[in-house]
Design a binder for these strands. Sequence first.
DNA 1: TCCCTTTATTGATAATTGTCACATTCCATT
DNA 2: AATGGAATGTGACAATTATCAATAAAGGGA
Lengths: 192, 192
Amino acid sequence: MFEFFAQYLVEKGELTQIELELIRQAAVSKKVRKNHYLLEEGKVSNFIGFVANGCFRLFRKGEDGQEYTMKFAIENWWISDFTSFMSGEPSNCYIEALENSELIWFSREIWDHLLATIPNFKRMIDSLTAKNFEANQNRIFSNISEPAEVRYDNFVNKYPTLYNRIPLYMIASFLGITRETLSRIRKQAAKK
Amino acid sequence: MFEFFAQYLVEKGELTQIELELIRQAAVSKKVRKNHYLLEEGKVSNFIGFVANGCFRLFRKGEDGQEYTMKFAIENWWISDFTSFMSGEPSNCYIEALENSELIWFSREIWDHLLATIPNFKRMIDSLTAKNFEANQNRIFSNISEPAEVRYDNFVNKYPTLYNRIPLYMIASFLGITRETLSRIRKQAAKK
DNA sequence: TCCCTTTATTGATAATTGTCACATTCCATT
DNA sequence: AATGGAATGTGACAATTATCAATAAAGGGA
């Protein structure tokens, strides 16, 4: 299980064997069963998880009671409510396992310690944080500038391994449209 | 001019006089005239600016050639294309002065040096970065979960000093609607 | 396999938003 | 104060999307 993560660390972060060993000792394996929650609204997101296996979604509940998907995470992605993690304030998000999943799990204390003691790890995470920021910017731009059909096309192209693994109504809420509209967009697209 | 910035640093970052002096020496004052650009698409955002005076907008051009406002910045706000700043890649954004404005301007080299040598400054910036991340999350959530009228109301409540200082069509593009729709939303709201 | 729950599709209709054309208002400059 | 350009408002209509209701399809236990 950890080996999968170790491979990621070597590829992405160019970590040495010694550094890997430090992380291995700090890491906790965690299984989350389908439909169970890793985080619920009101609780502080005191962890960061690396998805070794399975699939998660992070969502918020709107004024209308509906669930709005903020992000998905599959293998090789990191999952947490980073806002709550950074602020230490209670989260307004839920993190739900969409499949039986396995995580490499780090508490806040351990995470901070790893960042402070392993420069290569910190470099890797800083780089990911920058990418994450960029992705958020792009998503905002997409939301304000592109019609729903284009947003869906881009989603499919960007996450080819996601769109046939996740219920469509979650993708719809991620894109900011209703499931019915997504259904019709797909029907249109199929004609072409 | 710098005094305005110094006050901000003391309030937000609790910087000492010695630290202030280091920053003062590193800072460059810069004036940007109304309608002039601080950054244009294709160029690297090699700076971070603190708005001492005036107003800026950061926007991207859509496929349709339209300008979509990604953010505004007035006094006490920071302005840069952080995506390009962090990656070193050419920006896809423009930063335009909406008024005659004054900046405290830091080159990337100086910025990195300040962060590395002044822990209080780094702490302050890290905190702002976290807030910025949170704001982006909230904006995404707003875009996918709230109707235009609510988004506009929230905008007005959140940025009371902004909405009567900036052309409405820029606010419309920030919210992801056309100016005509915003005009009608405002008309509706006025009735209540 | 069958049944039940969840998910997806579809139709009809309403609400929202966009587009285009034009009128009006607001400002900055002379 | 006059003028021209930018910004905003408005009306008519089209396109998009939401809502509601019902059906169909898919998937997961017992």
